[in-house]
Design a binder for these strands. Structure first.
Length: 235
DNA sequence: ATATGCACCTGTGTGC
DNA sequence: TGCACACAGGTGCATA
């Protein structure tokens, strides 16, 4: 990490840790804050004080009086942390759409109600439309709602929109309850793997039989992302 | 307005 | 066993 970043946070007290969309926020007592994104392989891990530095570690947070250190590591180095002012914090967070778990089905479904020709999957992945939904959960929500990820927003019925939003909410809540989805190397701050993986119906199941109807799950590329769906259950 | 391709990186799995 | 290649949870930008 840069010397500038270290200097900007050294000695400050973290008052609150929160999240908006996929952005983590560490709020300091002077109004400044660290904002960060883990991207795909980033993680925070509490480690003992005798912890030995690992290859992909990018910063080790040492707290005065703390029993443990906090390490930020990131294999692919796509993630970032930066220290921002009060205004910088607003600016970093203002572009995101509503939080799916803090917003009504009606309001969220309305955001999909547009004559737009873009696909439902593109809309779900667009953080300005709805915050926080990633590739796995977009595929899973479409499957459970019986909607093909390739469907255009303009072709969706009000019922389709409501269904997919309801599924987004259910899936995200369930995944949070189960500590997320570990597909490769995701772990939480205690090193625990996510338990949602076993509930995946389509993601990572290309060519395997649909759990509902046995049709082989199809995998295509959509919005530049691996996209999984059942050609029978999803229309 | 939207889609596509690529870029940022490293690691892993697969096929030859 | 080694090598080449495709692909991976995300996003931003340049181009079509």
């Amino acid at each position: 990490m840069g010397k500038k970043f270290i200097e900007s946070i050294l000695g400050k007290r973290i008052e609150e840790v929160s999240r908006r969309a996929k952005i983590l926020v560490f709020q300091f007592d002077d109004g400044t804050a660290i904002v960060g994104h883990l991207k795909m392989t980033g993680k925070f891990l509490f480690v003992p004080k005798n912890y030995v530095r690992q290859k992909h570690d990018r910063i080790l947070f040492v707290f005065s009086g703390g029993a443990e250190h906090l390490v930020w590591s990131d294999i692919r180095t796509f993630g970032y942390l930066k220290c921002v002012s009060v205004e910088g914090l607003d600016e970093a967070l203002c572009k995101y759409g509503p939080e799916p778990l803090e917003t009504s089905v009606e309001l969220l479904a309305d955001r999909l109600c547009t004559p737009s020709s873009r696909t439902i999957k593109a809309a779900l992945l667009n953080q300005e439309c709805i915050a926080g939904v990633g590739n796995i959960y977009a595929d899973e929500a479409c499957h459970r709602a019986g909607i093909r990820p390739t469907r255009r927003l303009s072709s969706l019925t009000a019922k389709n929109r409501t269904e997919v939003i309801k599924e987004v909410k259910k899936i995200l809540q369930k995944s949070i309850d189960l500590n997320g989805t570990t597909s490769n190397d995701y772990v939480d701050t205690n090193g625990t793997q996510g338990g949602f993986s076993v509930l995946l119906k389509v993601y990572g199941r290309a060519n395997l039989p649909c759990l509902k109807c046995k049709t082989p799950i199809k995998k295509i590329v959509l919005v530049g992302r691996g996209t999984h769906y059942c050609p029978t259950c999803q229309r």
